[in-house]
């Protein structure tokens, strides 16, 4: 899609396999429901894509309260993948998603490899899904609750199994809670993934000093929001230099400037997550601001920014600070 801005045509679109995305801003899984909840406040057709809440084979009630706590510049969550399950998603949510003029990416979560495959196979039989994003940051019930996503062989195995079952683009959402995220990115690239999303939340914790108790019912949770942006940017940079498949940048993006930073660090596209909780229209605002940046900089194709950082010298600290 070409958008008129500042007298120039700016190309904002990109492709992932057969799927054309009208712009480089997607809304992250778990931060936009199933796409239908925000409709009264947001024109979802102006987004590049919607990533659904994680879908599991059976409905999940989620964790006991408290599930969220605000931290400095961010929030911790421990939702526990509460969702309506893939069957109700297909019957109740997909009909609406088929009517929207934006890409729909189904996010899948599971506690066994068989469950990942089962959810994907159900969705394979349905029209209206453009791609899959796989949440590997889930406890593996067969391995005593160890997170799939922190085991490189398990992450690769999930990718391989799913690759054999779909021709739709397969995006693996990587966790940053590992020593070298790029090793995981390489492993899923070798196993047939079409792209990686970097990154899921960082493990974090908050305590109440009065009661001496953890704030979250699960003790630890996932940290997101502006506080994690520098970490996410470094993970995207590390990953983009290690693999040939595209990287989708996620982590604390709240405005167009943040998003451009991720493109420069090597992200083909970005996802807006926690910012949607603060402003349901955050994704659209980010997309508009990215376009305005391109107009201001005389950039005709936003794609020319991907990986275009100048890593030779640092920026003057004084300039960026003051």
């Amino acid at each position: 899609m070409h958008a008129q801005s500042g007298g120039n045509l700016i190309r904002t679109s990109f492709r992932l396999g057969p799927v054309e995305f009208k712009n480089r801003v997607l809304v992250a899984s778990g931060t936009f429901g199933y796409g239908d909840e925000c409709v009264s406040a947001v024109d979802v057709n102006r987004l590049g894509g919607i990533v659904t809440k994680s879908l599991s084979l059976k409905p999940r009630e989620g964790n006991p309260p408290p599930r969220i706590v605000e931290t400095t510049g961010g929030m911790l969550n421990s939702i526990g993948l509460a969702n309506i399950g893939v069957h109700r998603f297909v019957s109740e949510k997909l009909p609406f998603l088929r009517t929207v003029d934006t890409a729909v990416i189904a996010n899948i979560a599971a506690s066994t490899i068989e469950e990942y495959c089962a959810v994907l196979e159900i969705l394979e039989g349905e029209e209206g899904i453009d791609a899959y994003e796989i949440n590997v940051s889930c406890p593996n019930v067969r391995e005593g609750g160890l997170n799939f996503g922190t085991s490189c062989p398990m992450t690769a195995e999930i990718t391989k199994q799913l690759r054999g079952r779909t021709r739709r683009p397969l995006i693996i959402k990587l966790t940053p809670n590992v020593t070298h995220i790029s090793e995981f990115a390489r492993a899923v690239e070798d196993a047939g993934a079409d792209a990686v999303s970097v990154m899921n939340t960082l493990i974090g914790m908050a305590l109440d000093v009065r009661t001496r108790k953890p704030v979250l019912s699960t003790v630890t949770g996932g940290l997101s929001g502006p506080a994690v942006k520098p970490v996410a940017l470094a993970k995207v940079y590390e990953t983009a230099r290690a693999v040939k498949i595209p990287v989708i940048g996620i982590g604390g993006i709240t405005n167009g400037r943040d998003a451009i930073e991720f493109l420069l660090a090597g992200a083909l596209a970005i996802q807006v997550g926690t910012a949607n909780f603060v402003d349901p229209a955050a994704g659209i605002k980010v997309a508009d601001e990215m376009k305005a940046y391109c107009a201001e900089q005389g950039i005709a194709d936003m794609g020319s920014l991907v990986g275009a950082l100048d890593a030779r010298t640092g920026v003057s600290v004084l300039d960026s600070w003051l």
């Binding site: 936009f32 429901g33 925000c38 969220i68 939702i79 349901p280």
Partner: peptide, 9 residues
């Protein structure tokens, strides 16, 4: 607005 699922009762 029911998106973040952060306030279960």
């Amino acid at each position: 607005i029911g998106i973040c699922q952060g306030c279960p009762v």
